[in-house]
Write a protein that binds this DNA or RNA. Sequence first.
RNA 1: UGGGAAGUCGCCAAGCGGUUAAGGCUCUGGUUUUUGGUGCCGGCAUCGGGGGUUCGAAUCCCUCCUUCCCAGCCA
Length: 569
Amino acid sequence: MQEKDDLDLKEKVSLNFLERIIEDDLANDRVPNGTIVTRFPPEPNGYLHIGHIKAICINFGLAATYGGRCHLRLDDTNPEKEEQEYINAIKKDIRWLGFDWGTHEYYASDYYQNLYEIAVRLIEEGKAYVDSLSAEEMRTYRGTLTEAGKNSPYRDRSIEENLTLFEEMRQGKHPEGTHILRAKIDMSSPNINMRDPALYRIKFAHHLRTGDRWCIYPMYDFTHPISDALEGITHSICTLEFEDHRPAYDWATSIDGIKHTPHQYEFARLNINYLVMSKRRLLNLVKLGIVTGWDDPRMPTISGIRRRGYSPESMKDFINRVGVAKVEGVVDYSLMEFCVREDLNKRSDRLMVVLDPLKVIIDNYPENKIEYFEAVNNPEDPNSATHQIPFGRELYIEREDFMEEPPKKYHRLYPGNEIRLKYAYYIKADSVVKDEQGTVTEVHCTYDPLSKGGTTPDERKIKGTSHWVSATECVTIEARLYDKLFLDENPGKSTGNYLDDLNPDSLVIVPEAKAEPEILSAKVGDYLQFIRNGYFCRDTTDGQDGKLIFNRTVTLKDSWAKMKKKMGM
RNA sequence: UGGGAAGUCGCCAAGCGGUUAAGGCUCUGGUUUUUGGUGCCGGCAUCGGGGGUUCGAAUCCCUCCUUCCCAGCCA
């Protein structure tokens, strides 16, 4: 026990770099009121995915551990791409993970007026100007990575002219692309983001929240830091690709009149092999109809994994185990599966479902007799309830669980071998019936009445235990067996196109799986284990008409499959 | 070849001048087991390379190498 306490202590002492920064800031009185304020600022132009879970956990998590708060801010500065559907989904997904932003729900568009006034002030101070170069010309003037840029010929317009033009832009007197407001910083900066970054562009687009009030929209580098400052964010945490933007961030938060100075810190985004995570690619999968939607259980979106049956707890645990650092890496898909299995093993009720039925007839068992056996719902839970399972003369077992000519180490059913039917009896295979093609259609067995419940007085060892259902009392369900969407751990890396690495078997539908009647009590949201087959959940979307559809969340670990592979089968 | 960042076990990741270089996943032996699941026990690195500083370096300095990001009126 003492040792365990020491370990816990050690774990707490090991802080990630963000926690270290925060603790240092707190200790040195650099945090107003000692209140840490973070924010999660998604752009509502798509669904949130697993990568966002990391950002959500970091921002909400840090706020929680240091007694601060985390704002939800929808970064809606590009009306052409943003939709209400995405806003709704984003909020639902964050709540599903168990985080709460309370009253702190903000929109970048809330600050359009402030931003506009700040822009005018910058012009008045000679720190911003209206450029009338075309987009292509601007690119030319910007220079390259290795060559400095050139000043725009419009850079030295008078303050009055700038003011007039900007006002006309706001009034909609100029077409898109004709003018743009830029910060006057330094066209020769080695950091391209500082070569007079664009502040405002003209867009005659209807905005979700501000409607047609504006036809000029502020850019990220201008909007984001000022939004942070206005909200009193203390630690603005983003991903590594924004490191180059930090000087722009600091420039914006240093504008005269800005009262609060937040700071930006960057961490490495989450990458997981076998998954594609970019919004562009995900949107493409949806548009091309490769998946049924953003919430297709094969999608790495939060709504997808929720529908697949992943628990929010397992995802948060996963993020925790991955850690937070600045090293760009790729986490193994297997770590995520481990976290899901670990959580689901503890919480899911067990059920017997036969996915690929093979009929078993117990010749020495009375016809028409049905007896019931008691099964523990969850053997991992000492307080678990139990339920009854009907047993009879005709059963179904998994086709995989019988072989006429078994390989070495196969200890399931085969002629002459005895196995245990979980909770029920021992049976021994005697003979088989085949169809014209030679496929086994029935296995005739004998049972041992002394083995009732799964043990015998002579305590003889039985190596194999199979799950089963009564052929007459079972319920037919549809099982959807999901697997990875991509076959290559880095989709598109070797083929050049990620769509070429699609897994043709990412969804295998079993239209008529046979389940024990207890499955009728399964509700949407229940976490289930189909014994020996994996974790499943009731589908939330396609099962609404009462149809029994179950999604496979993840398989169980399968060391037999591994052994078969090793033996070259 | 400009600027920014990163390199510790197959994958993450602790470590912050003195440790036998944590831990987790994967893999791999064994064991328990009415799920070939779970659980339990065990195995698995000298820190990108080379110099240097120091009694002592993964930790400090120099240098080289490799990888990632940036030339949207996207975020």
